[in-house]
Structures are given as C-alpha cells and as structure tokens.
Design a protein around this nucleic acid. Structure first.
Length: 485
DNA sequence: ATGTGC
C-alpha cells in the first residue's frame, strides 16, 4: 500500500506540482506533477526517493521530473523524466526500463458501439486467437533468422510494413515513424537475438493488453476530429514492447554500465542507477543497442496491428480495409532519445530519458505529421482494465517544463504481490463483467495483478496534466473487451 | 517488464 509521504521535505509550487528542494548530492530540484490528493495517497515515499536519487546524476538538466502516474521502479521511478547534457551527462538503462520501447498504439475504426455490441464475444475470441499472449508467448509462423532480425532492428515498423503487415500510411502516425536512428545490431548480444527470433507479433504478459473500447466523451472536438475519433466510435488500443529481446539488451548492459560508472568516477546513491557518460563507448553502445530493441518493439506493434485488423474482419465478416482501422498514433513510453529542447531560452541537445512517460509534442512542432500539425501530438494514456483510457494532446506547457513529456498511464498503486493478496477470494473476471468489460487472460494470476484496485484512477492522473497545461484532454474511452497476457 | 529467482 502506498504510504503518505512524510519523510521527505517537499513544497507545493502550484495546484499541480510539488518541488523537492535540492539538498545533499542533488544537482537540481525534483519536480513532481501531483495534486494534494495524489500526494496524500498514490505517490509513495520510495518513488520520491528515486526522484531525489536521479537528481544526483551528472549532467542532469533543469529538474528531476516525475509525472502524476509516478511509482517505484528499477533505479529511476516509473513516470520519471530526466534530461542530460550531451557533454557532461549520462545515459542509464534504469532510466529506460527493462521493456525498452514499451509503448501504446491506438487504432480507430468506422464502427460504432451499435455495430459491435452483440458481437463482442466473437471479437474477443478472434483477438485472443490472433494474438499470442502470455509469458513466453511466441509465433509459430514468424521465426526470424539473424539477417531478418538485423533488418527489424534497423528498420522498425517499416520492415513489418514492407513484409505486408499493414500499409505505408501507418508509418506516418508513429513516434519517429516507427524507427529510431543509429541502431547498431553489432551492439546486441546473440542471446538477445535468440530470445527475440520468435517473439515478433506477440503480446507478452503483465500490464500488456489489446483492448476494444468505445469513445464515450469528446473534450476537444477539433483534435478528436483530426485523430479520427468520434463519440460512440470503436477503437482498439495495444500495449506491448520489445519482449525478451529488449529485456535481454537491458540485462546485458547493466553490469557494463555499472563498471563504466565506476571508471568515470560517478558516485551512485543506488546501484540500480548504473549509467555511463553519453560520450563514452559504453554509453554510445547502450543507445545503439537500445535503438535496436526500440525498433523491434515498433515492428512488434505493427505486426500486432495487422493481426488485430484481420481478427476484426474475420469476426465481423468484413472484407479487408472496409472497417477504416487507421492508426491514430503509436508512442514509446520507455526510451532515451537525443532531442533538441529550449532550456533557459537557449536551444540545447539533451538525452531525454522517459521511463513510463510519453512524448507530448505541442501544435506546430516540425516532427508532427501534417494532419496533426495544427493540433499537436496524440498522447495515449491507458487506464486500468475496468476504467476509462484517455487520449490527450501535447500542449505548450510540456515544451516549456517537461522536455515535451506527459504521463503514460494510471500508475500502479499496489505491488503485484499486494494485488494478488487483495484479490484472494474474489472473482475479478466477474467484477469486470459487472462493469461491462469482457476479459480473456493467458496467465492465471494476471487478472489479480492487474485488477483495477491495483491502479490509480487514470482520470485523476490526466486531470493533473490537463490543468498543468502539459497535455489537454481530447477523448475518453470506455473499455469493452480486453485480451491480457 | 522478463524462457519471474544468487
């Protein structure tokens, strides 16, 4: 259970933010986006301690930031954002997470709730059959040799499109067009490659899912229209990452980064903050291997999108392409990227770590696809299994204060084990059914680990982003049917 | 998150 934090001194800056003043070895202040209500319950002391620890790392720029879905993670907090100077700064696998380029993709459709309301069981069955899910899930029909793995790692979602999974226009509406630059396959271990070979187009387990939902509220009509969203419309949300491939990349680099930090004379308050100077060989190699895993994850979501479209067409007996299942957007929420940001009125290249945080570009940014240029980037924020998800849009406050970043989800409130304990004697599937949500899960304990009570209210989390001017509410989506790992 | 763990 998250304890109210009383051990660490912080000051409220405004209704949406608290500051942890620089002290001890901190190089910058901590800045946490959270209301009084979230600080009272939902933001635990351990996670705030991690905001402080990250603030001690060399080259950190402006603040050690955390979004309102902050919770405890490996080294860096989940919901954490930290940018580092390219000369003085570091890169850290703990600031990215084990699931490199874990992310979210949303597909819209021409379907309305009336079209699917009595077909949801068929749809769920078709999706469950089409999407390999669960721990160790793998593909029977896609097994990549080393050369194909290299192509996936270099080309990302574009590789999948060229193989016939989806259409070229899908690439226009993905962060970095579904491909991170500077991927070097030689920086990836044989073991990682072996683990990834049969995992392209698979869901995995834990909080990963495929969800069918209905848009039940529009807050910002112009942005919603640009994103293809309308009230009563059916959408599909995918949440998955780089599977065993990215996990192995992270695992491989941790001991090397630990050694690199010591060689560079960096004092770490926590071993899990293992890092290397951005200018070092280890730092560059990590970013090159991380890019391979990120591209694998983009390709994974691209293949899955194709499977989802096929499942919809099969279940609803529609011919290919007639359901209007266009990609709304695809975001990475576990990644480190070299980006240009305005810091103290000056344009600066920095390495932004987003760990459980979503990029949130405001209107007018040159990296936005033309149809979104006038409104801003979609920020996809899944809720828990039983409560709504949200589509937000990046706002100028993000460019000004958060290195163009926003929250990524509801944020876990109970540990997995605490959730399992609390679910004992309950029928979570039935509880969800009473809320109108059908669910099929591959793993036995997944429903307990992932039950709604284990999470904060995503609505409360996105309200903070909205009121702080970081990302504005565009649409709310009510869950109907969920495939879990 | 993860062929769950020194």
């Amino acid at each position: 259970m998250a304890e109210p934090n009383r051990t660490l001194r912080w000051e409220r800056r405004d209704e949406s933010r608290v500051v942890i003043p620089r002290h001890g070895a901190m190089r910058v202040d901590g800045l946490v986006y959270a209301t009084e209500s979230l600080m009272a319950q939902g933001v635990d002391a351990a996670a705030l301690g991690q905001v402080v620890a990250v603030a001690t790392l060399p080259g950190i720029v402006t603040h050690s930031l955390a979004m309102p879905d902050i919770h405890w993670g490996y080294g860096f907090p989940i919901g954490g954002v930290a940018a580092f100077d390219m000369d003085e700064g570091i890169v850290s696998p703990g600031g990215v997470g084990f699931d490199i380029n874990c992310g979210v993709r949303m597909l819209r459709s021409n379907l309305t709730l009336e079209d699917v309301s009595n077909r949801l069981d068929d749809l769920l069955a078709a999706l469950f059959a089409a999407v390999p899910a669960g721990l160790g899930s793998h593909q029977r029909d896609i097994r990549l040799d080393r050369d194909r793995m290299r192509a996936v790692a270099r080309e990302g979602a574009g590789w999948a499109v060229r193989q016939g999974f989806g259409s070229p226009s899908d690439l226009d509406v993905q962060e970095d067009r579904g491909r991170i630059a500077d991927a070097d396959f030689d920086a990836v271990s044989d073991k990682a490659i072996e683990r990834g070979r049969d995992q392209l187009g698979t869901l995995g387990s834990g909080n990963h899912f495929v969800e069918v939902g209905v848009v039940d509220r529009i807050d910002e009509p112009a942005a919603a229209a640009a994103f293809g969203l309308f009230e009563g419309g059916i959408v599909v949300t995918l949440h998955t990452g780089s599977r065993g491939f990215g996990h192995q990349v992270c695992t491989d680099f941790l001991p090397w980064m630990d050694r690199a930090a010591r060689q560079a004379g960096i004092t770490l308050p926590d071993r899990q903050l293992a890092c290397a100077p951005l200018r070092s060989g280890e730092g560059r190699a990590y970013l090159a291997a991380m890019a391979c895993a990120a591209n694998f994850a983009f390709a994974n979501r691209q293949v899955l999108s194709h499977r989802v479209r096929q499942a919809f067409e099969a279940a609803l007996r529609e011919s290919p392409g007639h359901l209007g299942m266009a990609v709304v957007y695809d975001v990475a929420h576990n990644i480190a990227k070299v980006e240009t940001h305005t810091v103290d009125g000056r344009s600066r290249r920095v390495c932004v770590h987003r760990k459980g945080a979503t990029r949130a570009l405001a209107a007018g940014h040159p990296d936005l696809p033309a149809p979104y240029r006038a409104v801003g980037q979609p920020v996809l924020v899944p809720g828990d299994m039983g409560r709504p998800s949200f589509v937000l849009v990046g706002m100028p406050g993000a460019a000004r204060d958060t290195f163009a970043s926003a929250c990524h989800g509801a944020g876990r409130m109970l540990s997995r084990s605490a959730a399992i304990r609390s679910a004992r004697g309950r029928d979570i599937r039935d509880e969800l059914a009473r809320r109108g949500v059908r669910v099929r899960a591959a793993g036995h304990e997944t429903l307990a680990e992932e039950m709604p009570d284990a999470y904060k209210d995503a609505g409360e989390v996105v309200d903070v982003m909205h009121r702080a001017g970081v990302a504005a509410r565009v649409a709310r989506i009510r869950p109907l049917a969920v495939v879990k790992g």
